[in-house]
């Protein structure tokens, strides 16, 4: 009984963390069709912002929910203004330019912060299930994933910004003729995606620690989840996280985490053979 509960928690945790890691990327991809190759570095910067501000004496929750998202949002918006803006509509060039930003951010952080790993111990103690103990932080990550999903859904579905953003997503030129400032929407969307990435990076910092290259450990999973999910940011990423997170956790449970990752990749590639535009390229059309 306890084993079943534990594996259940592990699977839900894998799904939730996959969603958290990919959410910021999927917002930017869904809105602009741009794969932001600097996504891993957004996560890394979020982690650093969080750890450094906790070490500076700021409350841990304020660091996670305010400082980290704000810092990464500002960096994301600056990057959008300086580089991505000049390349809209040229997807391949955007990918390459964001790759350059990724290398640049890795280089700058390794020069300024060094290569040693920084960390904060995970708060929230642990919960006992029979003879086993599960970190309370595991449940926090699961809750956070649901909160982020609900927050993004609410913003995109009900706010005036969400309406404009969805309009721009469907047809940027039509939105522009109706008086929407498309440049502003892109900038704000990029900022929103970056802020969510910063939050996710902060949330994983107590578990994995932060180094200048720690973004690289996350991005493989994040990319493949977003690609498998297809063009709709929320439904796509959450269904893909469900499917791939389940496979990842199941294979990890019977072998090693690396084989779990390989199984995730193999499943995603098979999925793309059947649904080349991702899950939401065929299903749930017109959703969020």
């Amino acid at each position: 009984m306890e084993i079943i509960a534990l594996s259940g928690i592990n699977i839900v945790y894998a799904v939730a963390s996959l969603f958290l890691l990919a959410a910021g990327l999927s917002i930017i991809f869904g809105m602009m069709g741009v794969i932001n190759l600097a996504h891993g570095e957004f996560l890394m910067l979020g982690g650093f912002a969080f750890v450094l501000s906790v070490n500076a004496g700021i409350n841990i929750w304020i660091s996670m929910f305010v400082v980290a998202p704000l810092v990464v949002m500002v960096i994301g918006m600056v990057m959008e203004r300086l580089i991505v803006r000049h390349l809209y509509g040229r997807t391949v060039e955007t990918i390459l330019a964001t790759w350059g930003v990724s290398l640049l951010l890795i280089g700058v952080t390794s020069v300024t912060l060094g290569y040693q790993q920084l960390g904060v111990s995970a708060p929230l103690g642990s919960v006992e299930i029979g003879d086993y103990r599960v970190g309370g932080y595991t449940f926090f990550i699961i809750g956070l994933a649901f909160a982020v999903l609900a927050f993004l859904y609410a913003i995109l579905r009900w706010s005036s910004f969400g309406l404009k953003a969805r309009g721009t997503m469907q047809s940027a030129s039509t939105a522009a003729t109706l008086g929407v400032n498309v440049g502003y929407v892109y900038s704000a969307t990029f900022g929103l995606g970056a802020a969510i990435s910063g939050l996710a990076g902060a949330a994983f910092a107590p578990i994995a620690g932060v180094t200048p290259v720690s973004g690289l450990t996350y991005i493989g999973k994040a990319f493949i989840t977003v690609i498998a999910g297809g063009p709709l940011p929320l439904i796509g990423t959450s269904t893909a996280s469900l499917l791939l997170g389940f496979i990842n956790a199941a294979v990890t449970a019977i072998s090693t985490p690396v084989l779990g990752e390989i199984a995730l990749l193999a499943a995603a590639i098979l999925l793309l053979r059947l649904l080349p535009a991702g899950i939401t390229g065929r299903f749930f059309r017109g959703g969020l």
Binding site: G33, I35, L37, T91, V92, I95, L216, I219, G220, F223, I224, I227, E261, I262, L265, A268, I269, L270, L272, R273, L274, P276, A277, G278
Partner: peptide, 23 residues
């Protein structure tokens, strides 16, 4: 075979090939 016969788009293919490298 999987990518081209599945007609995965250009950008998807690029990211998938990079992900294979990462993994």
């Amino acid at each position: 075979y999987v990518a081209f016969y599945g007609r995965i788009s250009d950008v998807y293919f690029g990211v998938v090939s990079l992900t294979i490298s990462l993994i």
